[in-house]
């Protein structure tokens, strides 16, 4: 059982190690000559303004709620996708029905203007 996850463990360990080592390397090898401009907050080259701790619009939350539904849809599609070749055409139609049912919700949201940003 555990042997099956050995490649995954190697990948996780390797990922953490690479990130950690590069952070340490830039700490040790990099030159640190801080000027006033270098010390400012990096905001994609723009001059930063305001406070980062301000309230965000609730619209982000509404988009996130819609995202959750399709996130859970993907979870239901996972077992089918893995057995796709063995299962054949009937489950494929069932999955199309599954997606079509959820598409009604998407259409409703679209018509209601839930995806507009105003």
């Amino acid at each position: 059982m555990l042997e099956a996850y050995f490649p995954l463990i190697i990948m996780v360990v390797f990922g953490f190690a690479v990130a950690f080592i590069f952070m340490l390397l830039s700490q040790w090898l990099g030159a640190r000559r801080g000027t006033k401009e270098k010390q400012t907050v990096y905001e994609s080259g723009m001059v930063p303004y305001g406070n980062a701790r301000e309230r965000f619009s609730v619209k982000f939350y509404l988009v996130a709620v819609s995202f959750i539904v399709f996130d859970i849809e993907v979870v239901f599609l996972y077992p089918w996708a893995i057995q796709f070749k063995e299962l054949g055409i009937v489950p494929f139609i069932a999955v199309l029905i599954f997606i079509a049912i959820l598409f009604i919700g998407y259409f409703y949201e679209y018509k209601k203007g839930g995806l507009k940003w105003d």
């Binding site: 709620v65 489950p91 409703y108």
Partner: peptide, 28 residues
């Protein structure tokens, strides 16, 4: 799980879609 979900429990699979649809429309 994939085989069972697509054969024995296929109705539950489609019912899950309707449940998600209800949640989605309610949220909207």
């Amino acid at each position: 799980i994939g085989t069972l979900l697509m054969t024995k429990y296929i109705l539950a699979f489609e019912a899950a879609a309707i449940l998600l649809l209800i949640a989605f429309i309610g949220a909207a």
